[in-house]
Design a protein around this nucleic acid. Structure first.
Lengths: 354, 354
DNA sequence: CTGAAAGCGCTAACAC
DNA sequence: GTGTTAGCGCTTTCAG
């Protein structure tokens, strides 16, 4: 050994080079295989307590950090999962992502986040890149009702959990809010305030949420014996403020009569606000608006937006746990989770003017 | 070969197993080393055009996807960088993160995002985990003025770029907005509107932004010949709505006289809104408020917030480029970037009541 | 220009 | 219980 003292030797490893399992093994006077077993919680019991302790000490002294890359290469696993979202810049997703990470962290997993911009080609490239990085599973927030890529993955039995959205095929686990009940909450609230003609600015029909909320809207009206008038519904091409504005404008332009509008989500509701402002209509005096999502800061709008709260963080966290279940055991039966929603009453919904 | 037809053989690789470089080499009738050279753009010129083409074709037929894990293990690089932020849930960060990704993507790099929650211990654990994953560099948005971890990394000459914040030591490249000019823009605007006594709700003094904006506030007042009164400044312990509210409350409680307030950022401005509302003070009639950042949706507040816009996406993108420069060549001289800011005039700042 | 060979750091049969 | 061995898939000297 070219090192004058043990200390120098240690310093060499700690500072200059990062210690490998071989170094640890040599220091503990055992074979690398044994060191591996001693350090890995899952195999720890295969080795003598005393030996294990020696290895642990050596590892600590050398500042040993396992190399996850080498481990991945050997095991074809990575202790990481991919998170596929349209755009982190959309305020809907940060809380979900945080939930996912918080669900993953205790299990020692971490998340790779990618933004697809709702571009199927980009999505496919990103998923492929995630898979070549050996992610152990995928959490997907971009589901459209028809989604070949997702069905492909599901057919392969690749661990996969959808958040926020579902696809038509029931074989893919999903964690979503209970939109039907959320819509019912909103409509009932409006009805109780005295509204009878309630319009709907609907989300894109190729999303499960857009379509589901629209259906729930119709069903709830029916249940309450309120008029179900197709002329009171305007669909959007995207979940954007701009589309929300266009939709409400159409409704207003054709002189539809209504005193309240349920927006498919908060972004669409924001668009409604814009149109009302433009036309000098007061919310809620002239028109009540209810949103969906309870996005950050909608309580600061004028008027503060009454909306349906979705537990985004929890959705992410549950999805992470569901995914981990499937990662650990691919034969875990497919299970979806429906989380309860709550109505947040603020000032954008009030009794209609007489 | 146990396969009856070439097609079956191909299917085997394409569908059942993922083809490796060896498979490609065998199919092209060359040595794996040659196949590697042929497929890697950087070594491509070392091999005969004809051979290279054969290899390329074989790769395509087999649906070959290089395994980045194996490559990383060999090269100690990963074509990925770590992005260290306090919390993706803070609306400040998504656009920066997006900018980083957009800056990285064309170069074939991707980003690992981690949330520190401003916890130094967690940060250190996360950075260490990123490094063991062989990230080629780090983009850090969590800098405090004193930041041992960052200085350590810098001392090692580990590729590193700060965004949004700086540290005291000048040896670390940073991409930030030109806060001094931004503050000047805001104060001058207020002065032009006729305000003379302008208060400041200052960000945390252990952040470069908090401190820098405070300094710029004083300097600009002085330049304009306006009163520089320490009694008109209240400091915050965090960049939060709550802290902003507490700060403005303190100012109001001690009966300080002022007609406008410059908030250290939009979140603090939001806190100011809350206090004004609570006390029945009208903004801007009784009190003008100017924010900083131009966060998403502050244009929807009541009143829409006048604020200083920081080009967050661009900050992220420039940081990515700067980092990549250093990754490719560690001896690239340290260079920091100051991006111009703009004042966004909305309705929260108006002439003072006489 | 291409082949041969070694090895990145780790794990997992398989021996003993 | 622990050592031995082989190998995950790739790159990169070194020969020729």
């Amino acid at each position: 050994m070219r090192y004058a003292t043990r200390l120098q030797f240690l310093r060499y490893f700690v500072v200059v080079r990062t210690a490998t399992l071989r170094d640890v093994a040599r220091h503990a006077g055992v074979h690398p295989g044994t060191a591996s077993r001693a350090l890995n919680p899952r195999t720890r019991r295969l080795v003598n307590d005393e030996t294990a302790e020696r290895v642990r000490e050596a590892a600590e002294q050398l500042g040993y950090r396992p190399n996850p890359i080498a481990r991945s290469l050997k095991t074809s696993r990575s202790a990481s999962v991919g998170v596929v979202i349209p755009d982190i810049t959309n305020p809907l997703f940060p809380p979900i992502v945080r939930g996912v990470e918080d669900g993953l962290y205790p299990a020692g997993y971490s998340a790779w986040i990618v933004n697809t911009d709702n571009d199927a080609e980009r999505e496919s490239a990103l998923v492929s890149s995630l898979r070549s990085r050996q992610v152990d599973g995928l959490i997907v927030a971009t589901a459209r009702l028809q989604h070949p890529l997702i069905e492909e993955l599901a057919a392969e039995n690749f661990p996969l959990v959808l958040v926020n959205r579902r696809i038509e095929s029931p074989s893919v686990p999903a964690v979503t809010g209970d939109d039907a009940r959320g819509v019912a909450l909103a409509i009932r609230h409006l009805a109780e305030l005295g509204h009878e003609r309630i319009a709907h600015v609907a989300g894109p029909p190729w999303t499960s949420t857009g379509r589901g909320r629209h259906r729930a809207y119709r069903e709830t009206l029916q249940e309450l014996g309120l008029p179900v008038d197709p002329g009171l519904v305007a669909g959007c091409e995207a979940w954007s403020e701009q589309e929300g504005a266009r939709a409400l404008s159409r409704l207003l332009a054709k002189k539809a009569r209504f005193t309240a509008v349920l927006a498919g989500n908060d972004l669409l509701a924001l668009g409604c606000y814009d149109v009302l402002n433009e036309r000098g209509l007061d919310c809620p005096a002239d028109m009540s608006v209810v949103g969906f999502n309870d996005m950050a800061f909608v309580d600061k709008l004028r008027p503060p937006l009454t909306t349906v709260r979705i537990p985004h963080h929890q959705i992410g966290a549950e999805a992470a746990r569901l995914l981990l279940d499937r990662v650990e055991n691919r034969d875990t039966p497919v299970k979806s989770i429906l989380l309860p929603l709550t109505l947040v009453e603020r000032q954008s919904a009030a009794p209609p003017a007489r």
